[in-house]
């Protein structure tokens, strides 16, 4: 209620009071009763208006705080999503670590064997060059050397394969990094909303709270259980889709 409303309200009460005095002086007690009732009614309606105004302000404040339902959707969707995303990160890092360790554990014994055989042969070779080797011994040495060259290729190729596997296992860093970036983005948003809540609780009105500029986000890596309906399931589907473009 602004000042003119208050003035009207006071003027109205004054008028009614004068009427009441007149009625009482003139002995019109029925009229006086009606005037008293009117005065009471006037006061009630003033209170109701004030209460209505407060209710409206509260409603607006709450509505502003809800932003565009963003907070509700953060609580209902984004937080559980973030949990699933982070769990997926744990799984991916776990898989990568396991894959790397498996490859290392498979490659290390191969390297040890290769090294040991190489050392043995090198010692024999030294003896051969120093002419310390007997013909029988030399025949055995020659056979070992032949075996070594044959096996060697396969084993080094196997070690190479394991090293490539370790290389490919590092792709988790890019993918989990993208997922974690999204969760950080969500944490930022929650923080901003909490700051707005504090401002609201402190009674300071804010107008730009709901206009936090959200960057247009790319879909990023698909998370098991949270896949987008429009996402392809893998490289085969990409190839099929692109085939329609003549790829």
């Amino acid at each position: 209620m602004d000042n003119t409303d208050v003035l009207d309200y006071q003027q109205g009460r004054l008028n009614l009071a004068k009427d009441l005095v007149n009625a009482l002086e003139q002995g019109r007690s029925d009229d006086a009763d009606i005037i008293v009732l009117n005065m009471a009614g006037m006061r009630e309606s003033y209170l109701f208006q004030e209460l209505g105004k407060l209710t409206r302000e509260l409603h607006e404040a709450l509505k502003n705080f809800m932003l565009d339902d963003r907070i509700a959707s953060i609580a209902v969707e984004d937080m559980p999503d973030a949990r699933v995303r982070l769990k997926h990160v744990i799984e991916m890092t776990d898989q990568s670590a396991t894959r790397t360790l498996n490859a290392v554990e498979a490659a290390l014994p191969l390297c040890s064997t290769l090294l040991q055989t190489s050392k043995d042969l090198s010692e024999q070779w030294q003896r051969f060059t120093k002419r310390e080797m007997q013909p029988d011994e030399f025949r055995v040495f020659g056979k070992h050397l032949g075996d070594y060259f044959n096996k060697n290729n396969d084993e080094i190729a196997a070690v190479e394969g394991h090293l490539k596997d370790i290389l490919m296992a590092q792709d988790f860093q890019d993918l989990t990094g993208q997922i974690i970036k999204k969760v950080i983005h969500l944490v930022d948003e929650v923080e901003k909303n909490l700051v707005n809540l504090i401002k609201l609780a402190g009674g300071k009105r804010f107008s730009n709270g709901s206009q936090v500029p959200l960057q247009e986000e790319l879909a990023g890596p698909q998370i098991p259980g949270l896949e987008s309906s429009s996402a392809v399931k893998g490289q085969d589907e990409v190839d099929t889709l692109l085939a329609s473009f003549g790829f």
Binding site: D174, L175, Q178, L218, A219, G220, P221, Q222, S228, S230, A231, V232, G234, Q235, V238, L241, L242, F245, F247
Partner: peptide, 21 residues
């Protein structure tokens, strides 16, 4: 890691030669 159909189509239309997810 972008694997939405509309994105793959957008890349194809923009003239990409290959697309790996």
């Amino acid at each position: 890691a972008e694997q939405k159909r509309e994105q793959i189509v957008e890349a194809a239309e923009a003239g990409v030669n290959g697309y790996i997810v």
